Amino acid sequence: MKKHGHLNRDVARILAGMGHTDSLVIADCGLPIPPGVECIDLALQLGQPGFAAVLDSILADFQCERAVFAIECRQHNPAVLAQAEAIAQQGVALDFVSHEEFKQRCLAARAVIRTGECTPYANVILHSGVIF
């Protein structure tokens, strides 16, 4: 049994298989999952686990070079906007696109990690960087 990192075997498998520029989505419980994109469903109940906890956990174990958020979070979800700004402080490039464009970009993701988050626009697409 693993002692460190992600205990969820599907999350660990996806992270281990990510290559440069591959994308991974962390989603609230309402984001539609595109057909053919793997969904790792962590949702237990409304709000659990939350978007912030899952994002922090993934970023602790994942080399991220770019993060994409829905521009609507600027007006409708200040907590998610604050998380975006914190990610930028760590040197990650940020992009903001319309929610419709965001959903289209999810089609190219390796997987969607579905949280129990139930606030609007609590979604991000993370693009893999390299560790060298």
Rank of each mutant, 00 (worst) to 15 (best):
D10I: 00
H76Y: 15
C29I: 15
Q90L: 11
T115I: 09
F102I: 00
T115D: 05
D95P: 05
C73F: 05
A12W: 06
L42C: 03
R13C: 12
G5Y: 13
G5A: 13
A122T: 07
D10V: 01
A86C: 05
E65V: 15
Q90W: 04
A88P: 06
L59S: 13
G50A: 04
Q90G: 03
A111E: 06
A67L: 08
P120F: 01
R74P: 13
C64H: 12
L46K: 14
N123I: 03
P78T: 01
C64W: 01
A53N: 08
F102W: 00
F96I: 02
C29H: 14
A79P: 10
A84L: 04
R13D: 08
P78M: 03
P34G: 04
E65N: 14
Q48F: 15
Q45S: 12
H99K: 08
A82W: 10
A82H: 15
E117H: 03
E38R: 13
R114Q: 09
E117M: 04
R9A: 12
E72D: 01
C106Y: 02
E65S: 13
V97N: 01
V80K: 03
Q75F: 08
A88M: 06
H4E: 15
G116I: 09
S57C: 06
R13M: 11
P32S: 02
R74L: 15
G36M: 06
L107M: 12
R114T: 05
R13P: 03
A108I: 10
L44F: 09
A16M: 13
C64L: 10
F96L: 02
D56L: 10
Q48W: 11
C106I: 00
T119R: 12
Q48C: 13
D22Q: 04
A86T: 05
P34D: 02
Q89A: 10
D61Q: 15
D22K: 03
K103N: 14
F69Q: 08
Q90Y: 07
L46G: 12
P35N: 07
G50R: 07
D95W: 02
L7H: 10
C64P: 09
A84E: 02
I87P: 00
V80D: 02
Q90A: 07
R66T: 08
F62H: 08
D95G: 01
V97R: 06
E85Y: 12
L42F: 07
I26H: 09
N8R: 07
Q75N: 11
P32A: 01
A53W: 07
G47N: 01
D61E: 15
P32I: 01
H20D: 09
G50I: 05
D22S: 07
E38S: 11
G5Q: 13
A82S: 15
L42S: 01
P35D: 12
R105Y: 00
F51R: 04
L81G: 10
I87Q: 13
Q75V: 11
A53R: 11
V112C: 05
R114V: 12
L31H: 03
H99V: 08
